[in-house]
């Protein structure tokens, strides 16, 4: 598959063999074009999933996994959008089934899929604020609630006074009752 990508897109794309198949990195402008190419020319008729990855200062990666039922090859198409303004054209015009995946990526990472017919939260409860799968999302439950699991043997149910209370990972210093 790699020659087909190079022949079509030249050095605009980067390819990498992963253990799950070929991974192709494309710039965001070519996103829809690349996915269409994979569907039409590489026979990837099965859209498996689409999701995001928070890569901190490098932005958000958006990854789609495609599969060809005829030729039995896997394909990962990925792109990266900037953190400040994460926007990407939708691929619902290429794969209809991408709709819910893009809605989920939108609510979890805040990536806006332009042209999506119904870009509203899918899984989160009404009124939820924040983008919970971003790495800077603070898990407020860690602040509000002590770990409910079993204690060490001999420890009382109300924390160990002998040990210094450590802040849960990822919680800012000025949060919570023990700040």
């Amino acid at each position: 598959m790699k020659p087909a990508w190079v022949e079509r897109f030249g050095d605009e794309v980067s390819t990498e063999e992963t253990h799950g198949g070929l991974a192709v990195g494309v710039p965001p402008e070519l996103w829809v074009e690349a996915v269409t190419f994979a569907r039409d020319e590489l026979a990837c008729g099965f859209f498996d999933w689409l999701t995001g990855v928070d890569e901190l200062e490098m932005g958000f990666a958006v990854v789609a996994h495609l599969y060809s039922l005829e030729r039995r090859h896997h394909l990962l198409v990925r792109t990266r959008v900037p953190r400040e303004d994460p926007r990407l054209p939708t691929v619902t015009g290429v794969y209809r089934g991408a709709g819910w995946h893009e809605r989920e990526t939108f609510e979890m990472f805040g990536v806006v899929f332009e042209g999506h017919p119904n870009l509203i939260p899918l899984l989160l409860p009404d009124g939820f604020e924040g983008r919970p799968l971003r790495k800077d999302f603070v898990l407020a439950a860690r602040v509000a609630k002590p770990w409910p699991g079993a204690k060490e043997p001999g420890e009382s149910g109300h924390g160990a006074p002998s040990r210094r209370r450590v802040r849960p990972p990822g919680v800012p210093d000025d949060w919570g009752p023990h700040a």
Binding site: A141, K145, W147, P148
Partner: peptide
Amino acid sequence: CGGPYWDSYC
């Protein structure tokens, strides 16, 4: 009590 997901957002 939330179990293994006691600190989850959802």
